[in-house]
């Protein structure tokens, strides 16, 4: 139990997928202008990540490994992730049209979110068990959501300040992300106990 908690904490804070591993920066920069859409993106990614972690684990252990087709890993993982994303897109379009509009192109782009594929591949590479895989995915996704929401809060405030013209928009966004990443360094070593 304690080990699993540490796994969650470790993936969410210490090895935060965005701020420490620098994966999934595309939606992190793209959909963080408003807190509401950041929360939506975070939840969508969480759903995809957890589901993809479970599905890819099944794929890896029941199909790819028994048949000795490790070389098909990336291909088949992307296929599964793409289908999951497509499914999420449909659900969101039906249930939250505003969010759908706000997420725009970044929703289908979860497919190519390197965080999703990255976590799946890391899981496969480390040969983790099923629960571990799912927790790994969940923790990463929570970390991603947290980073997104924090960053969106900062950017909402940034939008109201007088940033010099040369740095307005994406440049100051990256500077902010850098400083946030600096702050997250403080969590280093938290799970070594």
């Amino acid at each position: 139990m304690n080990e699993w908690l540490m796994l969650l904490l470790g993936t969410a804070l210490v090895n935060n997928v965005v701020l420490v591993k620098f994966l999934g920066l595309c939606p992190f920069m793209g959909v963080s202008r408003k807190i509401d859409s950041a929360v939506g993106m975070g939840l969508a990614t969480t759903f995809v990540l957890v589901l993809a972690s479970a599905l890819t684990w099944a794929l890896e252990h029941w199909l790819l490994v028994p048949l000795g087709m490790g070389y098909l890993r990336i291909l088949s993982f992307i296929l599964v992730i793409a289908a999951t994303v497509q499914f999420v897109e449909m659900v969101i379009k039906k249930s939250a049209p505003d969010l759908y509009k706000a997420l725009g192109i970044y929703l289908p782009l979860i497919t190519t979110n390197c965080a999703v594929l990255g976590i799946a591949l890391l899981n496969a590479g480390e040969g983790s068990g099923f629960v571990q895989s799912v927790l790994y995915g969940l923790g990463s996704a929570l970390g991603f959501t947290m980073a997104m929401v924090l960053f969106a809060g900062l950017r909402e405030r940034l939008a109201l300040t007088a940033v010099p013209a040369a740095f307005a928009g994406a440049p100051i966004g990256f500077v902010t992300a850098g400083l946030l990443s600096l702050a997250f360094m403080g969590f280093a070593g938290l799970t070594n106990h």
Binding site: L59, L63, L67, M69, L72, L79, Q86, F87, K94
Partner: peptide, 26 residues
């Protein structure tokens, strides 16, 4: 086997999405 299994995955996803598309039509 590779062709068959990828086709199988693809087919499965296709069917699932097809059902979902009907279910969540807007």
């Amino acid at each position: 086997i590779a062709v068959a299994s990828v086709a199988l995955i693809g087919g499965f996803c296709g069917v699932a999405l097809g059902v979902a598309a009907r279910r969540f039509h807007v």
